[in-house]
Amino acid sequence: MSIQHFRVALIPFFAAFCLPVFAHPETLVKVKDAEDQLGARVGYIELDLNSGKILESFRPEERFPMMSTFKVLLCGAVLSRVDAGQEQLGRRIHYSQNDLVEYSPVTEKHLTDGMTVRELCSAAITMSDNTAANLLLTTIGGPKELTAFLHNMGDHVTRLDRWEPELNEAIPNDERDTTMPAAMATTLRKLLTGELLTLASRQQLIDWMEADKVAGPLLRSALPAGWFIADKSGAGERGSRGIIAALGPDGKPSRIVVIYTTGSQATMDERNRQIAEIGASLIKHW
C-alpha cells in the first residue's frame, strides 16, 4: 500500500482519535458579512469528516447552483462504474471539434489522439474542462443518470439537468442544476469515506481534487503551510461562485467545507476574496 493510499485508508482512524471539535460562531459572522459585502445569498456548511456531524452552517438547506462543483460527483459516478466493471479508466475516447464547448483548455489539445477516461476526469476536476465533463456525462448516460446515481446514494436534493455550459445559467428560483450545502457536503463525505467506492477509487477521487489547479484564489489562499486540501470550485452566471473541499491540518483532511453564493453584482475577484476570507476565519478558529 502506498503512503497516499495509507493516508486515505486511515482518515477515519486518525479522526477518531482527534480531540473533540467545537464550532466557532466567528466564522458564521464572516459568512454573514460576506453576504453584506456581496449583496447576495451565501450558503455555508462545515462537517466533521469522521462523524458527519454538522459543526457550523448557514442557509444549509437553500438551493444554490452547483456550477462546476458537480464534476466531482460526476467522476465519482464514473469511478463507481469502474468498480462495477462497467468502465475502464484506460479506455480512450475520441471526439471532434464539434464536441468542444466553451472553456476546454485540455480537451482542445487532444482532438487528434483523444483522451482516456482517467485523463478526462483529471481534466474535468483539476482544470474544470467543460468538454471533458460533457464527454464523461455521455459515458454514464447524461445528466439524468448522474441525478439517479445521487438518488441511489441517498441524495434526493442534488440534481443535474443540463450539460456544460448551460448548467451554469443560475436563474433565480430555478431548481435545475442545483444542490443544497448540506446535501453536497453529505454526498461528498460519502464519496470520500464511505463504502460506495473502493479504496482505490476513493484515493483516485481525492487525488484529482488535491491536484486542483484553478481554485488557488479561494480556500487555498488562506491555508497555512502543512495543511491538506482537496477541492473543486465552480463559477456561473449572475454572480455565482462555489467551492467544495476536504481539508485539515497535519497533512490530512478532517472536515468537509461547502460554500456557495449566487445573485451578486460583485466582480469575480471580490467573490473570490470573500470566500478566501471565510476560509481564513475557519482556519483561525479551527
Results as ranks from 00 to 15, higher is better:
L89W: 08
T187H: 15
I259N: 01
L167W: 01
A222S: 04
A133T: 02
R220H: 13
G141C: 08
E164V: 00
G226N: 10
N98S: 13
P172H: 05
S240A: 12
K190R: 12
D250R: 03
L89Y: 13
E35V: 11
E87M: 10
T112L: 13
M127Y: 05
E61I: 03
L167H: 04
A123H: 06
D113I: 06
N173V: 08
L160K: 03
D113R: 04
D231W: 06
D36I: 03
K109I: 04
I171S: 15
A266Q: 11
E87R: 10
S240E: 15
S128M: 00
Y103A: 06
I54K: 11
G234E: 01
K53Q: 07
Y95V: 04
M67D: 13
N173D: 09
Q265R: 05
L137M: 10
V82M: 13
R91F: 14
P60L: 13
E35P: 01
S80Y: 14
A183V: 11
D231L: 12
T179E: 00
I45G: 07
L111D: 09
L49H: 13
L191V: 13
E270Y: 05
A148Q: 11
N152A: 06
M127I: 07
L188K: 01
E61V: 07
N98W: 10
K109P: 06
D113K: 08
V42L: 04
E210A: 14
V117H: 06
F58D: 15
I93H: 15
Q265G: 08
V78N: 15
T138I: 14
T186K: 15
A266W: 03
F228Q: 15
T186Y: 12
V258L: 03
V157D: 08
G216T: 10
D155M: 01
L55V: 15
S68H: 00
C121F: 01
E210R: 13
T186N: 15
P25S: 06
G234Y: 04
R273K: 15
D48I: 07
P181V: 04
V72S: 04
T158S: 06
I256N: 01
N134G: 12
G154R: 09
R118N: 14
E175A: 10
G279F: 05
G226W: 13
T178H: 12
T138K: 15
P224M: 11
P165I: 02
Y95S: 07
L38V: 08
T147H: 08
I259G: 01
A215N: 02
M153R: 03
K144H: 12
I125K: 00
E277A: 06
H94L: 07
V258D: 02
R238K: 02
E270M: 01
L218H: 03
L136H: 01
I283F: 02
G279Y: 08
R202A: 08
G114V: 04
I243N: 11
L146I: 14
N130F: 00
H151K: 04
S80L: 15
V29T: 13
L247F: 06
Q37K: 04
I256P: 00
A182N: 06
S201R: 09
A215E: 11
D212S: 14
E108V: 12
A215C: 05
D231A: 08
M180F: 05
A132Q: 00
M153C: 02
S128C: 00
M209F: 10
D155I: 02
V117G: 05
L135R: 08
G242P: 00
R238G: 05
W227T: 05
L191D: 01
L28F: 05
E195N: 02
R273G: 09
S104P: 11
S221N: 05
D269F: 05
L135I: 06
M127S: 13
G43F: 01
Q204I: 14
Q37D: 07
E108Y: 07
R92N: 13
T112W: 15
G236I: 06
L55T: 07
A280R: 14
D155W: 01
V106G: 15
N152M: 04
D155H: 01
E210V: 14
A200V: 15
Q274F: 03
W208F: 11
V157W: 14
N130C: 15
A235P: 00
L205T: 13
F64E: 01
I171K: 15
A230D: 00
E46R: 14
G216C: 10
Q204N: 09
H24Y: 04
E270I: 01
K284C: 08
R159G: 09
F58E: 07
K30Q: 09
L135Q: 13
P60I: 15
T69D: 01
A185L: 08
T158D: 01
E102K: 05
M180A: 02
N50C: 07
T261P: 01
D99V: 03
G114I: 05
N50A: 06
T112E: 15
A170P: 04
L146H: 07
D129P: 00
Q86C: 05
R159K: 09
P105Q: 06
E145A: 09
G248W: 10
V42N: 02
R241I: 11
N173P: 09
T193E: 02
A235K: 10
I140S: 07
F228V: 15
D33Y: 02
Q37H: 06
I278C: 12
I244P: 00
L247E: 11
E164C: 00
H110P: 12
G52K: 04
D269C: 07
L79S: 07
T138Q: 10
M127H: 11
E169N: 05
E166T: 11
K190S: 08
V106F: 15
I275Q: 01
G76V: 10
S254I: 05
H94G: 05
I45C: 13
K30Y: 05
M184N: 02
P60F: 14
D48F: 05
L196S: 12
S122G: 13
R41V: 10
I283K: 05
G141A: 10
M66V: 11
G226D: 11
S264V: 09
S104N: 02
L146E: 13
S201N: 02
I283S: 05
G216N: 03
I244V: 13
D207V: 07
A235D: 15
E119K: 14
T267K: 04
R159P: 00
F149E: 05
A245S: 09
G90I: 05
H110K: 13
K232E: 01
S201W: 08
M127A: 08
A246V: 09
I125V: 03
S201C: 12
I278H: 01
M180Y: 02
L192Q: 03
L111A: 05
I93V: 15
T27V: 14
G52H: 09
T107E: 01
E270F: 06
F58N: 14
I54G: 06
L188N: 15
V214T: 08
N134H: 11
T267C: 03
P172L: 11
N134V: 11
A222Y: 02
D99W: 07
E56L: 10
Y103N: 05
E119R: 09
E102R: 05
L47F: 12
T187M: 14
S68R: 00
L49Q: 12
A40Q: 09
Y260K: 01
E164K: 01
L79V: 11
K109L: 10
W163V: 08
M66S: 13
G248V: 01
T262M: 10
I259R: 00
K213A: 03
A133S: 02
Q37N: 05
L111P: 08
I275E: 01
G52E: 13
L136T: 09
L192K: 04
E145F: 14
S80M: 14
S57H: 07
V42D: 01
D113G: 02
K30T: 14
R273A: 07
Q37V: 04
Q204V: 08
D212I: 11
D129K: 00
T198E: 10
T262S: 09
E108M: 09
Q86V: 10
